[in-house]
Amino acid sequence: MIDTSSPPPGWAEAVARAGTELGLGTAYAVMDPATWDRVRRRAGEILAGQGQALPAGWERALDRVSGRADPDGGAGDALARDEADAVLAEKGEVFAPEDDA
């Protein structure tokens, strides 16, 4: 994980450029998760195009640099659970929430 207390050079600018290019603005903190994901992916493309290597955890670091403490509100975890549930359902191993009790 990289230190986001002092963002790497050009990261904030890449996010601003991405939001502007996509016509989505720079109000990152209030963007819905899907919109923010578009901006974040474009910013990653911009940084990579500038020759910056994106280290592990760059997405979360970019989230923090942009003022998004929890950018997806845990949606990533929810999506992972949904995918896991789909795999279990395909195998016939479906569990109800009350099974955890």
Rank of each mutant, 00 (worst) to 15 (best):
P33Q: 09
A18H: 00
F95W: 03
G67F: 10
A16E: 07
A48Y: 09
G67Q: 07
P55Q: 05
R38Y: 13
A18E: 00
R81T: 15
A101V: 14
T20D: 10
D72T: 10
G76C: 07
P55K: 01
D99S: 12
A61I: 08
D63M: 03
A101D: 15
A69R: 14
P9E: 14
A86C: 11
G73L: 05
L62S: 03
L88D: 04
T26F: 06
D32C: 06
R42C: 00
L79W: 09
V94Q: 07
L24S: 12
T26S: 13
Q50L: 09
I46V: 07
V15I: 06
A86N: 12
V94C: 11
S66V: 13
R41E: 01
P71V: 04
R38F: 03
P97I: 12
D99E: 06
G76D: 05
A18V: 03
A89H: 12
V65W: 01
A96K: 03
A69S: 15
R68T: 02
L47F: 09
Y28M: 04
E93H: 15
G76F: 02
R42E: 00
T35W: 12
D37N: 14
D77Q: 15
A53L: 15
D77S: 15
D3Q: 03
A48M: 08
G67T: 06
L22A: 13
E59N: 08
R38D: 05
L54Y: 05
A34D: 01
S66T: 10
T26Q: 12
E45H: 10
G44S: 03
G10R: 00
T35M: 15
Q50E: 13
P7A: 09
D72I: 00
L54R: 05
